[in-house]
Design a protein around this nucleic acid. Sequence first.
RNA 1: CGGAGCGUAGCGCAGCCUGGUAGCGCACUUGCUUCGGGAGCAAGGGGUCGGAGGUUCAAAUCCUCUCGCUCCGACCA
Length: 448
Amino acid sequence: MRLSRYFLPVLRDTPKEAEIVSHQLMLRAGMIKQSAAGIYSWLPLGLKVLTKIGDIVREEQNRAGAVEVLMPTIQSADMWRESGRYEAYGKEMLRIVDRHDRDMLFGPTAEEVITAIFRDCVRSYKDLPKNLYNIQWKFRDEIRPRFGVMRGREFLMKDAYSFDLTADDARKAYQRMFVAYLRTFARMGLKSIPMKAGTGPIGGDLSHEFIILADTGESQVFCHKDLIDGAVPQAETDFDGDLSGIFKDWTSKYAATEDMHDAAKFEADVPADKRVSARGIEVGHIFYFGTKYSEPMGARVQGPDGKMVTVQMGSYGVGMSRLAGAIIEASHDASGIVWPVPVAPFEVGLINLKSGDKDTDAAALALYDKLRDAGIDVLYDDTDERAGGKFATMDLIGVPYQLIVGPKGVKSGEAEIKNRKTGEKQTLSLDAAITNVVEAVKRQRVLA
RNA sequence: CGGAGCGUAGCGCAGCCUGGUAGCGCACUUGCUUCGGGAGCAAGGGGUCGGAGGUUCAAAUCCUCUCGCUCCGACCA
């Protein structure tokens, strides 16, 4: 993409309403624009990040055997009356009346919709297990939205729902999502820690929150230090096999959010030097809740013995729009965002130090074409902005590698590569610079 | 919803107390000079001062109401 054709409204000053660094940087980098309290438009740069987060979520959901669907944002109140949650949910649910006076609502989650789909479409135990996921905008009319996209009212969530014949199978389904989540967050450069959690209004008796440690987190969390650098399951992990070993490794050490915290047990189980008490950002939440929805809504299949069995369910959420903010909280410096390559909106920023100079333009354009041919997502700053401003913009929006060409470099046949994260600079021949930066990007695209 | 603030140009702010018809920095436009880490000079464009009502000869400024936004608490991906 050529910057001259792109839409990147960056700000030099920090808008005063932004309190935390991710919100400030998202506004300054032109990723989002507030539309109302807790409601944002995603500008091109922000949308690219959201899309890359979505790509990773999809890959890992698919790997774990889940299948994507797309459910509506607007739901009928009738389904919620069936499950018994219409009255129970409270004011977070945005209730809407249509022109025929029918009660509708903007979905805060989709257990009811998916359970109705399953009930109407699946008859036999032979169709199980199933896991269907949905990436769709949700709306929860929070009392107090804050922190930009970290607690918006409208937010993009991946929600998956598992259906199994037995409680034992359902626990396996839970473990598949558990492992998928460990991989998903790790691929975004995050160290997530699964923590025992309360189930809230979703209900159920087995639940984990996936937490990213950050000072600006909204939850107080307690865990064993070793969990911070726990081993992330490899891509080759057999999701059809036994995952209970991985699950046990990650859940046998103490980790709990505030509402599930047991101070006595924490002190008994964790040596003093391994006790971590910190703030955390919840980026995922998984639940096993059995027949909480399938029972009232009549989601049953015929078992091997011919008898009707109410299916066992679980649900699995990832706060995708929140993740964009969470990644920034975890990865930024004084100059701006430092994107991990897999979620970077652009992988390489090509800086032309003297746009308008014939030779430099030609050299930069040649590099631009080569990078694109190599499959690199590149932002070419071809504007007549001064060099300092170009560097500042690239630093702010967090492009992982900057490839810099100017008249001097063109004369000597060289270009400079700057690593955004380490600040390291390297001057190489034009060809070597391309090769080098392409390899560096490709190496970091996927989790080893 | 309880408590605390803030709404003046795209962003950051001053002006309000003590009414006299709107200003600064950045950004933007044009020209010239500059140009390897946020340039300089000059000339410009852009604002129903959140909205409504009131007081007054006169309101960004005083009064009333209202809307929006932010922060602290309870709620949550």
